[in-house]
Design a binder for these strands. Sequence first.
DNA 1: TTATCATATGAATGATTGCTCATATGTTCA
DNA 2: TGAACATATGAGCAATCATTCATATGATAA
Lengths: 109, 109
Amino acid sequence: MAHDHAALLKHIKADMPSDELLQDLGDLFKIFGDTTRIKIMYALYEDEMCVCAIADLLGMTQSAISHQLKVLKAANLVESRREGKTIYYRLADEHVKSIIAQGYEHLTE
Amino acid sequence: MAHDHAALLKHIKADMPSDELLQDLGDLFKIFGDTTRIKIMYALYEDEMCVCAIADLLGMTQSAISHQLKVLKAANLVESRREGKTIYYRLADEHVKSIIAQGYEHLTE
DNA sequence: TTATCATATGAATGATTGCTCATATGTTCA
DNA sequence: TGAACATATGAGCAATCATTCATATGATAA
């Protein structure tokens, strides 16, 4: 089973984050790994927006958008506030923008 | 079908990247959205490493690692060089690190 | 209260995907 | 050339997941 690299592995292993954190990192990026959710986050880039406006913008079902907003909210990527019947969503913090910006750079550099 | 927000949508739509780019962005982040690939990229964070060393490190099959390295390479996230029978992989550019770092910050802030 | 609007949610389904297993390719050394 | 080693790859399966459809919740106005 392969040649010897025990010394190297010991060193690398010491510098790696915990399995739990690595799992959480994967789970976080998984959320960015869907075009619909990317579009939603881009829609909220400059300002808050209500659910049906997002649905209109993306040409998708209100239900589909609502499901995705729930995913985004569970990951603390968006927040919401109610105003009468309408619920407005907005990006939760600057990390959302900077993560997307880094990906954008990688693609367009 | 929802209340009126034609004016808002027109404005937002003008600022959105093309559908193709948004699709590419999603596809890029999808690659970061897997724990095994995250681990591989972390393993390569400081230095290049051969396939079997990565497999040893993660306690996974050589085949599984090889398949994932192919995915990472197709997305220009890793590069490789051959030295005899061994093939060494390394991170392709700094975006890999900065994307992961942003995700890390979001989780641990 | 009743009707209507805005949003949320549960179940079902089709599509995507990560791993395994078997095997192929490519390199070195005897 | 043949054997052993390091890596790559194709097919198949199990698990995950995004959307749809039907329905529920919550709020406003008459």
